[in-house]
Write a protein that binds this DNA or RNA. Structure first.
Length: 196
DNA sequence: ATGGAGATAGTCT
DNA sequence: GACTATCTCCATC
């Protein structure tokens, strides 16, 4: 697989409804370029959050930490959680909404697997089946905060395999207590790479 | 196979 | 001072 055949997702892709973007990101490829190496993973699990949703980090307004969620769509919003982990989101929402993003929860490792293993530590078998794990495997931290995902660079998302609607499963989001009635977690049915 | 505790630190009240 | 959009390890079934 050569990098030249990758097709970056355009800015307009991220200007759709957040839950729609979350579903359409399934099957796309997350591409990380670091120290001359390339890491690629197929996105298999996502969650949608937007400003009118009590579980969204932007719900209580703009702060220094969540400002990227209010910025232009197609950029990376990264947050630090539980004193130990980073999680990666793609800013995505309709133009008339102020903020929203899609949490990338799990990917299927495709390229650079030995580098991912090095970042994770060899004791672990599960490389990227959870938001904290995939951030660690892809060397994603605050340095990439606000990165434009629609441009060739250290972190980007490119078009991938299209996923049939009937192989997309939705469920309540994981690890939150608010708005559990919203089934805004999406994953590829029968994928062995999802977080649970 | 499943469950609970502990690690650990940024962010907001 | 409380609260996380988590993970790993070790316990017990």
């Amino acid at each position: 697989m050569s990098i030249s055949c990758y097709r970056l997702l355009p800015r307009s892709f991220y200007a759709q409804d957040t839950a729609v973007v979350a579903q359409q990101l399934l099957g796309c490829f997350l591409v990380r370029i670091i120290r001359g190496k390339i890491l690629v993973g197929k996105i298999v699990e996502t969650e949608a959050y937007h400003i009118h949703d009590p579980a969204c980090h932007a719900y209580h307004g703009k702060t220094a930490a969540n400002q990227a969620l209010f910025g232009p769509v197609g950029h990376a919003y990264i947050y630090f959680i539980y004193g130990m982990y980073y999680c990666l989101n793609a800013v995505a929402h309709m133009p008339h909404i102020q903020a929203g993003g899609v949490l990338i929860r799990a990917v299927e490792p495709l390229e650079g697997i030995s580098y991912m293993q090095k970042m994770r530590g060899i004791q672990s078998k599960n490389l990227t089946n959870g938001p904290g794990k995939l951030a660690q495997a892809f060397a994603v931290d605050k340095k990439l905060y606000g990165t434009d995902l629609t441009k060739k660079g250290p972190l980007s998302i490119v078009a991938g395999e299209s996923v049939a609607q009937d192989s997309i499963v939705s469920s309540p989001r994981i690890g939150i207590s608010k708005a559990q009635e919203l089934h805004w977690r999406f994953y590829i049915k029968n994928s062995p790479w999802v977080s649970r």
